[in-house]
Design a protein around this nucleic acid. Structure first.
Lengths: 242, 242
DNA sequence: AAAACAAAAAATGTGGACAATATGAAGCTT
DNA sequence: AAGCTTCATATTGTCCACATTTTTTGTTTT
């Protein structure tokens, strides 16, 4: 019955495709934090039943990029400042361990691949494709995790990176001075990795993540609803007009 | 219409209760690795529909204590030796970071609670309640994570601890010499923590986790199906008989 | 006119029915 | 009799309909 045709392979697991689609939509910042993810709407968009959508939403929820509020629905996660600090601290700890592993296990072909990835990052920055760069930057860190060989850590970092993307959207400070040089930091890290300098590469990664956190505005003012802050002056104007 | 009565609070979220039940059943080693978790059976046991059971199984699957094989069903996870090494390495990295955090944030009341937890561990060991001790030992590590204040790391460690429990069942070497003194290692860690000695407490935790890994038999012989190893001599006998 | 209440609409939570797939057994061919 | 094919059974995957809850709308009352 030819049930193992190419079509069958592609057709099974519609969830995975939809999951990937939504995950990258969030990572590429086409879905903003707080956006309501209506089940019915997603059903029509992807032409599947709610069962599938619900499965995908729960998976995203477990990975902390979507928050499911009981009886209220699913929303793109809105990390709190505390959560943001936790995620960045976790990344410093985890990625230090990953760097130590990668220094030992990195092959020349790995270094080559990492360099080409950084080159792509540079192009994305040149062309002003910010969201693409965010995605590529995440891939760089995940590639290091893969090279280190620890699958458990790699999967956890994948979660942390996606959460970092959301954090970036929500708490980027106005200046944006950091991002253009972040690619350079990647270059330095690989240079240290290439010559097998464990301590330097770890230190550079730590500094890199610190720089990312420093580029954020994690003052608790932005914590709860932005609305109060956004409309603070508007209401004042309205008061003056009346 | 009195929808916020006590009953309502308890009635909502049947999933959570069932999840907790199954999770602790696996942690307390009442469910062995490889056990098939039939959906229909679980439906009858917990008196709910498959929708609920499926949600619970997927959650457990995401936490890597259950493996879902497409079109075949859910099974209690059977960590490979490689997975076991990854989990223990991840724990060394993560718990080192947690110790550094805990040294800074631990209050006297926290120390007190940790000591009482260790006391419970000692009692469980005295009374030969092995599975209870495993559970309590995990709680000790998780309490340190809670004290450190990093929620992201704490949740990840929770996953690692539960996986460690499965690993323990599957790869414990015959001698068992380690476990009786593991409680003592916890005591030493807290002693260092109490006096605020960061480096020593980190080193002790690292040694503790190394001791756990050393107590396991992670030779790849047990890697894939035990059957080949178990029946290796039997087939030889059968060959001789024919 | 503002607030509070009531009803309607919309969205989520759950259970059951049908379809697709895998497992095991019987029958057939060589 | 061994191996392969075919069929029957059991289990999982998906969809749909109903129940419950939330949100919105409209009305009433002060």
């Amino acid at each position: 019955m030819k049930r193992d045709s190419k079509k069958a392979v592609r057709a099974r697991h519609q969830d995975d495709d939809i999951y990937a689609e939504m995950f990258s939509a969030i990572l590429e910042q086409r879905l903003s934090p707080g956006t309501k993810l209506s089940e019915d709407a997603l059903c029509e968009i992807f032409n599947v039943s709610r069962t599938i959508i619900r499965k995908v939403l729960q998976r995203l929820s477990h990975e902390k990029v979507v928050e499911i509020q009981p009886n209220r629905g699913a929303f793109v996660a809105e990390p709190t400042p505390e959560e943001a600090r936790d995620v960045l601290e976790a990344r410093r700890i985890v990625e230090a361990g990953i760097m130590r592993g990668a220094v030992r296990t990195a092959k020349p072909s790995d270094i080559k691949r990492l360099k080409s990835m950084i080159a792509k990052e540079g192009k994305a920055i040149e062309q002003g494709q910010h969201s693409k760069w965010v995605s590529l930057s995440g891939d760089f860190h995940l590639e290091l995790a893969r090279i280190s060989g620890n699958h458990a850590l790699a999967e956890f970092l994948r979660e942390l990176v996606s959460r970092t993307s959301l954090i970036h959207v929500q708490y980027q400070s106005g200046q944006m001075g950091h991002q253009s040089c972040s690619c350079d930091e990647h270059v330095e890290i690989i240079s240290a990795l290439e010559v097998g300098d464990e301590e330097t590469s770890v230190a550079l990664m730590d500094a890199h993540l610190n720089a990312i956190e420093a580029s954020l505005d994690l003052s608790d003012a932005k914590a709860d609803d932005d609305l109060y802050r956004i409309f603070a002056k508007d209401t004042a104007i309205a008061a003056g007009e009346s």
